[in-house]
Simulated assay, not measured.
Amino acid sequence: MGNTKTSLATPSVVSDFKEITKMRLALSVVFSSVAGYLLGVDTVNYKTLILLALGGYFMVGASNAFNQIIEKDLDALMHRTKNRPVPAGRLSVTSAFVIASVFTLLGIVILYTINKQTAMFGAISIFLYTCVYTPLKTKTPLAVFVGAIPGAIPFMLGWVAATDNFGIEPGTLFALQFFWQFPHFWAIGWFLYDDYKRGGFYMLPTGKQDKGTAVQVVMYTIWTIIISVLPVFGFTGTLHLSVVAAVVVFILGLVMLNYAIRLFKDMTVKAARVLMLVSVLYITLVQIVYVIDKFIR
């Protein structure tokens, strides 16, 4: 019987770890930072790449763990989050705090071994997400603007890890992921509107599912497309994009814009959910195109 209990308990420990660090989100952040690294580097150093991936994971894991400690009472009110380890009572606040603190330390130390700037941006990301974005979420829809800063750091972080330099190139990568986050998060805010409302979060720019929000989703999608093709014009330093790659990126942008316009026309939860999925596909494919384009030129 004892063995059965152990085997039943183990998956829940693993799933709780996945949940507290938001593993899928953390892995997408690692993917972004690796893409940024590959864009910035001349010769791939696999040790640096592994350190960046580990440091990036710990950085996001720490931010998410702190977030779930701060929001445990609000998470308990929402269907989407009530079964998270802390609000569900499977993990104590103390245990979660220890995990978050250890992850912060590990993340910053690992990134510091790459270079100081990478560690600095990692620390800024954790601070903004935990101490500014999280408390603002229940106060103002402007929280999304603050949250977009740590959310945009990973793509840029990879370049800084590769070059130990912050300039126009990582700035462009940052801007691309920064503007992309608005249609992405507003789409989530739209289809989870009722659930967010239970927790007292108003994530949409106007505070509701209206034309004003839908117009802004379209506008920020257009900004994202413009920034994503900028490297083809040659004024983003050593960050280049071939004409073929720029056309592919532009077409991907038009696909996302089509779904943003569909949300504007239909104003439905379904349209918002589809836009969210398309936006994830868009940023992933754009990063892949950027990297492939660099290595085949």
Rank of each mutant, 00 (worst) to 15 (best):
R80V: 02
Q181N: 12
S92V: 01
T224H: 05
P87L: 11
T213I: 05
P205S: 11
E71Q: 01
A152Y: 00
L157S: 00
I69V: 15
Y57T: 05
T138G: 12
D194R: 05
F145S: 15
I20D: 08
Y202M: 15
P11I: 02
F66E: 00
L252C: 14
Y57G: 12
I124L: 14
P87E: 06
L204R: 06
F185E: 09
T268V: 04
Q216E: 13
A76I: 13
A96Q: 01
K270A: 13
F31L: 09
S32G: 01
K72P: 01
K22R: 15
G207N: 04
D42V: 12
L106A: 08
K208S: 13
M267C: 02
T21D: 12
D266K: 08
P154V: 06
M203Q: 09
V30Y: 03
Q68T: 08
V244K: 01
V60G: 10
P141F: 09
T284A: 14
A246P: 03
F264A: 08
V146R: 06
V215E: 11
L52R: 02
D42K: 11
F235A: 10
V278A: 00
L254D: 12
L257D: 02
Y46V: 15
F17Y: 01
G167P: 04
F58W: 07
K139E: 15
L8Q: 15
G189L: 02
L39E: 07
W186N: 04
K22D: 13
I222C: 05
R90E: 04
I261H: 05
G151I: 08
V229Y: 10
F127L: 10
R90I: 03
M120S: 11
P85V: 14
A214Y: 02
G237I: 05
Y133H: 06
I114W: 02
L38T: 14
F174Y: 10
M219P: 00
F182G: 13
L277A: 06
F58K: 01
F121M: 11
T236H: 07
S28W: 10
I168E: 08
L106C: 02
F31V: 09
T104K: 09
F66T: 02
V44G: 04
L277H: 06
V232S: 06
G158W: 03
G89R: 01
G212Y: 05
N64M: 14
T6W: 08
A162P: 00
G107A: 15
W180P: 03
D42M: 05
F17V: 02
K22W: 14
Y259W: 08
F97K: 10
N67Q: 12
Q117V: 04
I153L: 11
R24C: 02
V278H: 00
S7P: 00
V102P: 01
L176C: 07
L105I: 15
T172P: 06
I153E: 09
A123P: 01
I288W: 11
T138I: 15
G253N: 08
Y196F: 14
K72W: 12
V102T: 05
V215W: 08
T94K: 14
W180L: 13
S7E: 12
L8D: 15
V93S: 11
T48R: 01
T104P: 03
E71K: 03
F145D: 04
L263H: 07
M156T: 05
N115E: 02
